[in-house]
Amino acid sequence: MRLQNKVIIVTGSTTGIGKAIAIRCVEEGAKVVLNGLEKDLGEEVLNIVGKQNAVLHIEDLAADGAITRLVNLAITHFGKLDAVVNNAAIVASSNLYTTDKDFLRKLLEVNTIAPFTLIKEALPHLEKQHGCVLNIGSVNAYSGEPNLLAYSMSKGALMTMTRNLGDTLNRENNVRVNQINPGWVLTENEAIRKREHGLADDWYKEIPSVYAPSGRILWPKEIAAAAVYWLSDESGPVSGQVVDIEQHPFIGRNPPKNSQTMKEPT
């Protein structure tokens, strides 16, 4: 098992990518601290992985003291901390005209500041284990879709933090920091979001090739499989790296002329 006896915090692990990562980590021999907002969904994940392998902490990471409580839970329950997966995020549509300061601050608080705070709080424990951090970003970090301004800004900042801390913490604390930037992933929340936008329930079965050359989008378990490499000792001393997980080159890709597009009802 590639993560045998490692203790890993996975934020936002009651649904989607975080859930898939937590389940895969346990399959690979790790003990996991689950975190999210939905108690019922969190308990479902806890039952899947087994209560002997995980502990659940339901709390908004933006709440005062939440990060400290999360780290303390890992230490008191499992006795150490080997890795942190910063996955929790708010995905919300906005552009220049619909984004006000309060909305932007909210997204930055959860998507960027909470990961920063968790790294800082966990660092003494990670240093003891020569551990690592894996940040879950987004290909939108590079510029973002037209209606994902605030979200894209938060992920861009997260990527810069990964590059910066990936150098300094590896050099000074023997703690590696890397990042995965997923592309379009079929999570539960993404399926719901598209249906709320007026698309059919089975919208994901016919994705235009401009978005999905393979004929489908990514699954959470595929992101989880990639995460295991960065959390395991197999990645060696590698740090400060950002890896895009998508099925086409996101930057500089020119869609074919007259390509079919996936339009959402207005």
Rank of each mutant, 00 (worst) to 15 (best):
A74Q: 03
I192G: 06
L81K: 01
V243T: 14
G156H: 11
A227V: 08
E43A: 03
V26E: 03
I251D: 07
F78V: 11
G12W: 06
S93P: 15
D40N: 14
A224D: 13
R195F: 09
E44L: 13
N258W: 13
G50L: 12
N181E: 04
A22T: 00
P146W: 00
V55C: 12
K128H: 05
S232K: 06
L34N: 07
K101S: 13
V91F: 15
G198E: 02
N254E: 13
V110Q: 06
I8M: 02
T98G: 11
I21G: 05
C25R: 01
D60W: 10
R253Q: 09
E121W: 02
A227N: 05
G166N: 13
R163F: 14
P124F: 09
K101V: 15
V26C: 03
V10T: 01
K155N: 04
M1E: 10
T76E: 14
L231V: 03
N5M: 05
L186A: 08
A191C: 08
L108E: 01
L3V: 11
V242E: 11
C25A: 05
K194P: 09
E188P: 05
Y211T: 03
E121M: 05
E206H: 13
S232I: 10
E43M: 07
G29I: 01
K205P: 04
Y211H: 09
E28R: 01
V71G: 02
V133A: 00
W184H: 04
G144Q: 04
N72A: 08
A141D: 03
S143Q: 14
V7K: 00
G156Y: 09
E127Y: 07
M159F: 03
K155V: 04
E206T: 14
A89L: 09
T15S: 06
E28P: 01
Q179G: 06
I251K: 09
Q4N: 12
D100N: 15
G29R: 00
H57K: 10
N95F: 00
S232M: 09
A66S: 11
Y204V: 12
A89Y: 04
P256F: 06
Q179K: 10
N164W: 12
R2N: 07
I67K: 00
P220D: 02
I192L: 09
S209I: 12
M153N: 01
A157W: 13
I207Q: 02
K221E: 14
L199W: 12
G65P: 05
E121R: 08
R69A: 05
K155Y: 10
E196Y: 07
T168L: 15
A74P: 03
A200D: 12
A63F: 07
D100P: 15
S259M: 11
V26Y: 09
N170L: 14
I9W: 10
L70R: 07
G215E: 06
S93A: 15
A22E: 01
E172I: 14
V55I: 13
F78S: 10
N53Q: 14
V210T: 09
R193A: 14
E206Q: 14
S94M: 12
I251P: 05
T14I: 04
N140P: 03
D244T: 04
R2D: 07
A92T: 02
K106E: 10
I67H: 00
N95V: 00
G65L: 04
D201R: 07
S143M: 15
Q179R: 09
A92N: 06
L56W: 15
L158S: 02
V45T: 10
